[in-house]
Computed example of a mutant assay.
Amino acid sequence: MRIPSVVSVSRDDRHRFSKPVVDRIVLLGGLGIEGDAHCGATTQHRYLVKKDPMRANLCQVHLIGVELYDDLATAGWQIAPGQLGENVTTRGIDLMGLPTGSILHLGGEASIEITGKRSPCSQINGFQAGLVKAVFGVDESGRTQSRAGIMGIVLTGGVVRPGDSLRVTLPAEPFRALIAV
């Protein structure tokens, strides 16, 4: 069994679909990732700003498990960390199975509270035609579920690098399933 860890980190100061991989990111409490276009206390996602510019930013940090990329590779897709727009690519944690309110501890300082699932959009097909369908799976009850990652807000700032450990603190029960934010 692998120890849960950070595989890669990415950020971009512009609103582009893919984010370039960097050697470290700096998480800022209550805001997001320093130098990332989605950093801010209120929403920075362009389509959400149009709806409500004062909406709380529940999407400060986007995380995807590298296990998704491994699964997609077996189906012939070639995707590298950061290419689906995530800030943190992880290994060894079932991100999609975490309940809302879980806290991810990254490295020795930073922590992120999980707010919900990423809602995959047609931009994924702009990256690679047909990919949006491939990022969906079927759960135990036969329902179609997104596997496009989870979103969170920064509780505690700090530097995060590839190779950093990950640890999860679950919220109090009853657990609330992740929904799209």
Rank of each mutant, 00 (worst) to 15 (best):
R147V: 05
V6G: 02
K50A: 15
G92V: 04
L27T: 00
V159M: 10
R167P: 00
I114P: 02
K133R: 14
C39G: 06
P171K: 08
K117Q: 12
G157Y: 08
M151V: 07
I25M: 08
H38F: 10
A110E: 01
T42E: 12
T144L: 12
I112L: 06
P53K: 01
V138F: 11
L131H: 05
R46D: 14
R11Y: 10
I33R: 07
L155R: 15
L131W: 00
Q145P: 00
P120Y: 07
R46E: 14
T144E: 14
L170R: 01
A37S: 12
E113M: 11
G142A: 06
P162K: 08
M96H: 08
G97M: 10
L58A: 12
C59A: 14
L48F: 12
L58H: 07
H45S: 10
A134I: 03
I64A: 04
Q128G: 00
S111M: 04
K117T: 11
G65K: 00
V22N: 05
R161I: 03
P81Q: 03
H105A: 11
V181F: 09
L63K: 01
N57T: 07
I150G: 01
R24S: 15
T42R: 14
L28C: 13
G149T: 06
Q83A: 10
R167E: 13
Y47P: 05
P174I: 12
D23T: 11
L28D: 09
G130P: 03
L31I: 14
S10P: 02
S102W: 02
G142Q: 04
I179G: 08
A41E: 15
V135R: 01
S18G: 08
R143F: 07
N125E: 04
L178D: 00
G101Y: 02
M54Q: 14
G108M: 08
M54F: 15
V88M: 04
V21M: 12
Q83L: 09
L31C: 10
G107S: 03
G32K: 04
R24I: 00
V159K: 03
N87G: 01
G40I: 02
R2D: 13
L166R: 00
K133H: 13
V135K: 00
I25S: 01
Q60E: 09
I179Y: 09
S111G: 03
K117S: 08
V21S: 13
M151R: 03
V66R: 12
I93H: 06
S146I: 03
L131V: 06
I150Q: 01
R24M: 07
A129D: 13
R167G: 04
G108Q: 13
L131R: 04
T74S: 15
G108I: 01
D139P: 08
P4Y: 11
V21Y: 00
G92T: 09
Y69P: 04
S111Q: 05
G163C: 10
A180S: 13
R161H: 09
Q83H: 09
M54G: 07
L58M: 14
V26F: 10
L95Q: 02
G163I: 04
K51E: 12
L72Q: 02
E113I: 10
G158Q: 07
F17W: 11
E34I: 05
V61D: 01
I112K: 02
R2A: 12
V61I: 13
A56K: 11
P99S: 06
D139I: 11
N125D: 13
R118L: 09
D71H: 11
I25T: 06
